[in-house]
Structure formats: structure tokens, C-alpha cells
Amino acid sequence: MSRPVRVLMWIVGLAIAAYLIVLALLWAQQGRLIYPAPTALTPPTGGFEQVTYRTSDGLDLAAGYRAGEPGKPTILYFHGNGADWVSSVVATDRLVPSGYGVLAAEYRGYRGNPGTPHEDGLYRDGRAALAFLATRGIAAGDVVIIGNSIGSGVAVQMASEQVPQALVLISPFASLRQLVGEKMRWVPSGLLLRDRYENAEKIAGIDAPLLLLHGDADTLIPDTHSRQLGRLRDDAKLVIFEGKGHDLAWHDEAEEAVLSFLDTLNTRGTER
């Protein structure tokens, strides 16, 4: 074997080894990458009380709750991966004055809660949030589930298990596996990812009115994901906001779109 061939083989072997090391690091650290829980804790605001509910695997999670006016639905809000439940207070500050109750759900490993976040764990957390509302006399049919960003994965799963009054997804992905595959084409996401949040596989089977909101300037999760989800439900309402990015949930326009959607549902219910 000639020296140039040996050098080429050595370079190729080194590149393969480096690639495998990077994949191993991504495999080991994916939890931290997917769930970057904020370290700074802002104080609760907006008249929310801190409540605690227990998950099926024995974790006591602290979250925020504000009761609604009699006869008004309650919003069950699942926030994104880089926020905590107090951010949900800001994202619902135009819904509360309209009389809606809000349970700003929280996840394991976030805002001082015990446990480590992962897909199955967040589903357990979502079920515990619904169970908490049931203890307050609020059935699933009186709940509007809203999921922002990674919270869309929890929201979709909960809506597939218990039929809510409505489902609202803000800046959602079709699936986390698909999103990672688009962002990191050199990564075998189908093999690497432990958490996948396959929203596209579940959305058609959900028997609740669906609103999809997305900004066309979202560089983290492109609006093509909402468009893909919308095509899977003929009755879905899709609103694309020009110039808005991944922080859409905190813009007044997003809340106004939710209010308009819910008002339409309530009007239909009254007409029946």
C-alpha cells in the first residue's frame, strides 16, 4: 500500500472517529439540549397562585393557576422548552381579562421541580395537570389546551387522550425527529433521538377544533411545520403571522387570534 493511500485512509479514519465522537456527545447530552430549563426564576404575577399536583410516578410539581369566571373554559397552557410557567402568564394576559381560567402547567426539572424532563415524563406531567383541573370540577370538555413550541408535543398528546374543548398550537413542529433531521441533516435523528414528539402522527385522530399559529420569520421551527399539520386536518384553522419569529406566543396578535377562535366556537355552541 502506497504512502498516499495510507495517509488518505488515516484521514478518513480520523474523520469517522470524530463523527462518531460527536454523535456520542449528542446522544449523551441531548436532554440538556432539548430541555434548557432557565436558571433565573421570575416571581409569579398576574394574580396566579402557585399550586402543586402529583404525577403518576410520584413527583410533586409546582405550577400556576388562576380560576376563571363561572361558565368560562379554562386554558391549560404548556410552555416552550426555554421558559417556565411564569412565561405562560404573559402569554395569556389577554385571555384572563376575558374571563378564562388558566392553569400554567409546569414540567419536571423546571422551576425547581423534581425530576428530569423527557418525553414520557412530560406526558405524565400533562396528565397530572388535567387531573388537577378535574379536582377543581373542570372536565376535559371545558378545557382549551394550548401548546407553544415543544409544549405542542405535550398538548397534542393530551388532546389525543382526553377530548378538550379546543386545541391551539403555537409555533409547533410536525415532529421533533423531523425538525432535528431538517436542522442537522448529517445526524441520523431517527436513531439518535430518544424523544420524538410525533405530532403529525396524532393530529388527525384528535376530535377537537384546532387552531395553528405560526410566524413566517420563525428560524427555529419553520412555519412549514404548521402548514404540514394543517394539511392533515381539513377543519384546522391556520394563521401565519408576517414577520413574526419564534416568540410569537408573547405577541398580542397571537392572543387576539386565540380569542377570536374561541369566540367563534362559543358562538357556534350558543347557536346549537
Rank of each mutant, 00 (worst) to 15 (best):
V5Y: 13
R6H: 11
V7A: 11
V12I: 10
A15H: 07
A17S: 03
A18V: 10
W27I: 13
Y35R: 10
A37F: 04
T42G: 12
T45M: 14
Y65W: 04
E69K: 00
Y77Q: 01
H79N: 03
H79L: 00
A83E: 15
S87H: 15
V89K: 02
V89I: 04
G99Q: 00
V102D: 01
L103T: 00
P117I: 14
D120F: 04
D120S: 07
A134P: 00
A134W: 00
T135W: 02
R136P: 01
R136M: 03
G141K: 14
I146G: 05
I150C: 04
Q157P: 00
M158K: 02
S160C: 13
S160A: 15
Q165S: 08
F173R: 00
A174T: 06
L179H: 08
P188N: 12
L193S: 12
L193E: 13
N199I: 14
A200I: 11
A200D: 13
I206A: 08
D216M: 10
Q228S: 13
L229T: 05
L229Q: 03
V239Q: 08
F241V: 05
E242L: 00
G245C: 06
H246Y: 01
L248P: 13
H251A: 13
V258S: 00
V258R: 01
L262M: 11
L265C: 02
T270R: 15
R272G: 15
R272Y: 10
